[in-house]
Every structure is written in C-alpha cells, then in structure tokens.
C-alpha cells in the first residue's frame, strides 16, 4: 500500500511544476499545458484523498475538473487561434492588448 502522503507529494510537485511553467514560459501553448498540469496535480490530490477518506465526492469533483479543463482548453485554444490569425505570434509578451 502506498501511503497517502506520497500521493500528496506527487500532486504538489505536479502542481508546482505546472505553476512554474505557467509563470516562466512565454509560449502560450506551453502555458496552457502548464495549466493542465496544475489541474491534474489537484486531481491527483482529490482522488487520493477520496480513496483515503472513502468519500466518493472527491472523485466526482475530479471528473468535474476534467470536464471544466476540457472546456477551458477548447475555449482557450480557440482564443489562441483567433489571436494567431491576427498576430502571428504565440508569445505572451507581445500580446498585451488587455493592458488597462
């Protein structure tokens, strides 16, 4: 039996890698992948705790997150494509139209 805290560590590490990637990379596609990583880090935690606590709500929530992540990826990628049509770049430093 693998102890719970291994899962939690794994989740944390995946999450942190995702966060670091999101903050450091400039390629918008990579940033998307990083966000997926963060979400999956959370998912790992949720599933592990669900099993540990014998509560299915955690797994339900995970399915929910996956669904949201899929939707988000779809919308996000659509935006990226729309952006790319107007400006041939995927580099976020060059996309600062939302500056206040």
């Amino acid at each position: 039996m693998i102890p719970l805290h291994w899962y939690l560590w794994l989740g944390s590490v995946v999450f942190c890698i995702g966060m670091a990637g999101f903050l450091m990379r400039r390629n918008i596609i990579i940033m998307f992948l990083s966000i997926e990583l963060m979400l999956n880090g959370v998912n790992i935690n949720l599933v592990a705790l669900s099993h540990y606590m014998q509560d299915l709500r955690g797994q339900v929530l995970t399915l929910m997150v996956i669904a949201v992540a899929a939707a988000e990826a779809a919308v996000g990628l659509a935006i990226v494509i729309a952006l790319f049509r107007n400006r041939p770049t995927v580099h976020v430093d060059e996309i600062t139209e939302m500056k206040g």
Binding site: M19, F22, K99, G100
Partner: peptide, 16 residues
C-alpha cells in the same frame, strides 16, 4: 492602472 499591464504571467504571479 499600471498593475494591469496585460502580461499574463504578472497576473498569474500576483494570483499565486
């Protein structure tokens, strides 16, 4: 307004 510089990573950093 200067906080809203449009650089996604800044927002992410602040959020984190």
């Amino acid at each position: 307004r200067k906080v809203q510089n449009g650089v996604l990573q800044h927002y992410g950093m602040i959020m984190a």
